[in-house]
Every structure is written in structure tokens, then in C-alpha cells.
Amino acid sequence: MKLFIKYMVSNRCKMAVKSVLKQLGLRYTTVDLGEAEIEEDISNELQDLLKRRLDESGLELMDDKRAIVIEKIKNVIVEMIHHAEELPKIKNSEYLSEKLEFDYTYLANLFSEATGTTIEHYIILHKIERVKELLLYDELSLSEIANSMNYSSAAHLSNQFKKITGLTPTFFKQLKHKKRIALEDIH
């Protein structure tokens, strides 16, 4: 039985889900961002208990089909930007359509309607958070970061960074209190 879980954006979330499943005696085959596959169907009572336990961990068991698709979009974006070795070299729209096996127009309309923002803006917010992380590591030049994040140039990255954060990447690096946003708080 496949379960769809909202707000799963990190390995820590995956560990929390595994822990809850184990506590409830549910055997799972896989736990990935946004979903878990358990070996058996569960009763309504056990499903309610699972829902409560996940809520206590800041996660949410989903059953609405549209909400599930929206969460899958978010998870593919998080995986693509924060966990992949490198960003895909194809358009974001093509990548999402291929990964989710839906027409991009449908995905974009559904996402915008439900979240009040576009998929592209959501991707930009995540890219900027990843850029902040890379700037803090101080291992790559701005040009190398721009290249790794599929920006056309360091100038393009700088302009987008300033538009989103209000700061230049150079000034951000100099700040004593670096302001990063937790992945689960990016909307």
C-alpha cells in the first residue's frame, strides 16, 4: 500500500516516517521523499493512528489526489535542486513532466491554483536557498555556483539572488548571521 506524506523534504523526515512505521508495527519496502510503501493494507483505526503520529512529527498523511500531485511536484523539485549530483540540462517543465508523467500545463495550473505561486518561482526560491548553502561552504566561485545551478552567467545569478534576498551574493557571504530558510519553510 502506498502512502503519500506531506512536508517530507529531508533525510530527517524519512527517518521520522520510518520510526513511526516501526513503532506501529508496519513493515515498509521503501520510504522516499513524500511517500512510503508499506507491505500490507491497514485498517481505518491504524490509519488514523498513523495520521496522528505523523502530525506529531510535523508531517501529514494525504489522501486528496490533487494534494498528492502538488506534493510530488514539490518533492521532485527538492530532490532535483538539493539532492541531485547536478541539475538536469533540460527545461524544468520537461523534467517535471517526465518525472511525474503529467502534462506540464496541468501541473503548472494545479500548482498555482493550490499554492498561489508558480512552479518556476518555487524552483527559483529553492535554487536561491541552494546558492546560499554553496556560498556558505565557500568552496566554489560565484561563476562555478552559477554554472552548477544552470544560470546563464554569474551576473544572472547575482541579479536573481538580489531580487529574492535583497542582498548581493558577496554581501550575503560577509554577513555574520547567515539567513537560510529551512526547506520545509519555503512556500
Rank of each mutant, 00 (worst) to 15 (best):
L140H: 07
I123N: 07
I81T: 00
F4T: 01
E45H: 09
D185C: 12
N11A: 09
G116A: 07
V76D: 10
D64I: 08
E40W: 06
T165C: 03
L87A: 03
K176P: 06
T105A: 09
F111W: 04
S19A: 12
A67S: 15
K6Q: 13
S57T: 13
L107M: 06
I90S: 14
A36I: 03
A154I: 05
L107N: 01
D103I: 05
S153W: 05
N150Q: 11
Q23D: 14
I145W: 00
H83D: 14
A182M: 09
K72G: 05
L142E: 06
N159G: 13
M80W: 08
H126Y: 05
D103N: 13
A108C: 06
D103H: 08
K65T: 10
K51T: 14
T105L: 13
S143Y: 10
T165M: 04
S10G: 13
E85H: 11
R66Q: 15
I77L: 12
N109T: 13
I81Q: 00
L49W: 08
N150M: 06
T115C: 12
K179N: 15
R130Q: 14
L135Y: 05
S10R: 03
K132T: 04
Y104Q: 05
L167W: 06
N92A: 15
L3G: 00
M1D: 12
S148V: 10
A36G: 02
K99T: 05
D185M: 07
K127Y: 04
L59D: 00
F172A: 01
N109D: 11
D138R: 08
E45M: 14
S43Y: 03
I38P: 00
L24T: 05
L140V: 07
R180H: 11
T29C: 11
H121C: 10
H156K: 12
D64W: 09
E60L: 08
Y104S: 02
P88G: 04
D41A: 10
L167S: 04
E144N: 12
K22M: 15
I77W: 01
